[in-house]
Design a binder for these strands. Structure first.
Lengths: 188, 188
DNA sequence: TATTTTAACTAATACTATTAGTTTTATCAA
DNA sequence: TTGATAAAACTAATAGTATTAGTTAAAATA
């Protein structure tokens, strides 16, 4: 049914290699030429594994979203209420710091409306919903709150990554204070 | 001292053309080839106006940041307190909606640490500081608050642009509710 | 009027993704 | 064991990209 490959490149292995390039040099260096070089194959061979550069970006986005989800879900184990939100937030920004390129890839899918990409992202939204459920927000309040939390986390990570925070002021302290204020304001 | 150009391409005119391409087709379509075609010149001629694609991206980032600043500053005229923050927020997300490509360009400078880019961004930070001053936050609280507000605005705009908000729930309502909650939580 | 400077140009190079067609090799079925 | 199949590599070629070098035309200045 399925013959064994000559070299045997697993898709996951390829995506890990692409992720390393992204983290080390940024997404603009994730080219088919650079990826092929890292894998010791020729660029056209990559078309056997995904549909060109666009296909790679899509698969890498999903790979990154799922990797982020795992860390978020793990951070949310055994905690609840404000502690859970803070743990989730900490895990989020830490992921963006440790994997700047993969985090970048997360946002670089050719079509963010793509079903597979949406499904991967939906898991993170669901996780956020669950973590916020302890606050017993009424009606649409819960949905607005999810949008707010996601905005803070993504905005904070993105600005931090782009060097937007110049003040000599502890970053995690800012994040925690902002998250606490947001939760207090939403529930009060 | 300065002879008149043959065609007379002003840098601002070039950046406006680049901005139109960005808004209509996205930043990935802002290539020297496409820009030259729109201006009816040959790609190498563009090197007389900026230092290659990287130089264009930098100048377009500054152009976009200044354009955004003008709209924010205008929105903050004649209002104070919560109203001022809401007006600023509304102007911010509206800019990102009306000029998705230019907003994207704002974040795509080759080196965000570049002095000129930083200076342009500093004006927006200063504006945010001033708008938040009415809340009389103590010490570092004010600085943390600026980071929080910027994170919400950028995160919200970025997620909205990437199609991250799928629920049938009014977007501006979300934004205003989140901003109000944040302000309440920071000042309470 | 002569000089200088700006900003266009052409031609060439190196890199990119991509397609077409080929070859190697492992697996499966007879 | 052998023959067919299918995966996944390959080479060669093409089109599009940024970029550099060197040239030319025209406008402004002295």
């Amino acid at each position: 049914m399925s013959p064994r490959p000559k070299i045997g490149l697993e898709l996951t292995y390829i995506l890990e290699a692409a992720g390393e390039i992204a983290d080390q040099s940024g997404m603009q260096e994730v080219t088919l030429a650079n990826l092929a070089k890292k894998l010791n194959i020729r660029p056209p061979s990559l078309y056997n594994h995904f549909d060109g550069l666009g296909g790679l970006r899509k698969k890498l986005a999903i790979y990154g979203i799922e990797k982020l989800y795992k860390e978020l879900a793990d951070a949310a184990i055994g905690v609840s209420g404000t502690d859970a939100v803070l743990a989730l937030s900490k895990a989020y920004v830490h992921f963006a710091r440790q994997h700047p390129g993969i985090y970048e890839a997360t946002l670089m899918a050719p079509n963010p409306e793509d079903t597979e990409v949406q499904q991967a992202g939906a898991k993170i939204v669901d996780l956020t919903v669950r973590v916020l459920q302890a606050f017993e927000l009424r009606g649409d309040q819960a949905l607005h709150a999810v949008r707010g939390l996601r905005s803070i986390l993504h905005g904070f990570s993105s600005l931090e990554q782009k060097g937007g925070f110049k003040m000599a002021l502890d970053l995690d302290e800012s994040l925690f204070l902002v998250i606490r204020a947001f939760l207090k304001g939403m529930t009060a």
